[in-house]
């Protein structure tokens, strides 16, 4: 899966996991900030994203500070997942 496909999938999964009713995948920009601005997610949503990574991509975040970087945008999430998958090969 290339980055573009992964980002599309992530947008669908974020909407489903966070129950963002009324939000369409195309309205989430690849580089839009997920927290505060942009989607306006909060700390509970951050926990949901951690669960999403673990459940769908078998990736466990080792520390909370890592989350700030990883969950900055859909693009950074995709980079993190692809990097992790490359290491697994």
């Amino acid at each position: 899966m290339d980055k573009q496909e992964l980002m599309q999938r992530l947008k669908d999964e974020i909407i489903k996991q966070l129950k963002l009713e009324g939000t369409k995948p195309e309205s989430i920009g690849d580089h839009d900030p997920l927290f505060v601005e942009g989607l306006g997610l909060d700390s509970i949503d951050a926990l949901e994203l951690i669960v999403l990574l673990q459940q769908e991509y078998k990736i466990k975040l080792n520390n909370a500070e890592q989350g700030q970087e990883v969950f900055r945008s859909v693009s950074t999430m995709a980079d993190f997942i692809l990097e992790h998958q490359a290491k697994q090969v």
Binding site: Q17, L18, K19, I44, D45, L47, E48, V51, Q54, Q55
Partner: peptide
């Protein structure tokens, strides 16, 4: 389903 792991905080709250 997830054997008491990976629990969604939103559903709990």
């Amino acid at each position: 389903e997830f054997n008491e792991e990976l629990l969604s905080p939103t559903s709990f709250i």
